[in-house]
């Protein structure tokens, strides 16, 4: 007998796998560095934070003592929180460094940062 919590955990894990594959396809298809960062964000938030939330829910239903389940639950949540807090910093640092180094933004509609720094 599978409970609702386990089904929800499986669903979150499946969504995470789907997001990771789509993020990889986006990395291959998108035309330049900056647009590829958006595909990488799909892979980070959808592909690792959501499965970690699913793992936290799943760990509540494993056959073990309450302290062991609480340990797995809280550790999964802390890892998810750390990824949410640190991944935008890394993405921002890479984007800023690439723009300063003159990586081409083509194709583009407009580039307000280049106009402002000129």
């Amino acid at each position: 007998m599978i409970g609702i919590a386990t089904l929800l955990a499986y669903a979150l894990l499946a969504i995470g796998g789907f997001c990771a594959v789509v993020g990889a396809i986006g990395l291959m298809r998108f035309p330049n560095y900056f647009v590829r960062l958006h595909a990488a964000t799909v892979a980070v938030i959808g592909g690792s934070v959501i499965p970690l939330l699913g793992l936290a829910i799943y760990s509540l239903s494993i056959p073990a003592g309450w302290d062991e389940r609480a340990l797995y639950f809280s550790n999964a949540l802390i890892i998810a929180a750390l990824i949410v807090l640190t991944s935008p910093v890394g993405t921002h640092a890479m984007a800023r460094a690439a723009h300063r180094a003159g990586v081409p933004v083509e194709p583009k509609v407009c580039d307000k940062l280049e106009e402002a720094s000129r």
Binding site: F34, S87, T91, A95
Partner: peptide
């Protein structure tokens, strides 16, 4: 930055 589709490149 964490929502796909928008990335902060620089801050003034």
């Amino acid at each position: 930055t964490n929502t796909p589709g928008t990335v902060v490149v620089d801050v003034d």
